[in-house]
């Protein structure tokens, strides 16, 4: 099967709407079809990968833990908008430490998250075959 470059744009926070969890479902499907998958987090979407989400108090599934599994599906390009983080008083250290094992480098554990400026994100988006927005 031909491989395409898929980018998933995540612009909404986790629990107020169904967008975030639906995006994650579709991301995993694309990975199952061995496509080249990237994720971008911008606007309130950056809250999806904030460390320390505890959902006991709202009775909803804490799907933030699923992001830790992405590395095992060869999804290791998670771009996070620097501007969106700053606007929200957040920094990279507030995000979950998401990693993958690099098979080309003796399975060394490497960070999947890359904080990028909107200009950098613009360039990354222009390389994609498909962009899906959630």
């Amino acid at each position: 099967m031909a491989t395409k470059k898929f980018m998933y744009l995540n612009r909404r926070s986790s629990f107020g709407t169904v967008y975030a969890i639906e995006s994650l479902e579709v991301v995993l499907i694309a990975a199952a079809f061995e496509q080249d998958v990237s994720l971008a987090f911008m606007d309130d979407g950056v809250y999806q990968i904030v460390e320390g989400q505890e959902t006991d108090g709202i009775g909803m599934k804490n799907f933030s833990k699923t992001f830790h599994a992405l590395g095992d599906y060869d999804i290791n390009k998670l771009y996070v908008s620097k501007e969106s983080l700053e606007e929200r008083g957040l920094s990279e250290s507030d995000l979950m430490p998401l990693v993958y094992e690099d098979e080309d480098d003796d399975w060394e554990e490497k960070p999947s998250i890359r904080v990028v400026t909107n200009d950098e994100l613009k360039a990354i988006m222009s390389e994609q075959d498909v962009c899906l927005s959630f």
């Binding site: 926070s13 986790s14 629990f15 809250y47 904030v50 460390e51 320390g52 989400q53 505890e54 959902t55 006991d56 108090g57 709202i58 909803m60 804490n62 933030s64 008083g89 957040l90 507030d94």
Partner: peptide, 13 residues
């Protein structure tokens, strides 16, 4: 609402 704050990981923010 505390439960919603905790769900979003922003208790310390």
């Amino acid at each position: 609402l505390q439960g919603d704050v905790e769900a979003r990981g922003i208790s310390s923010k």
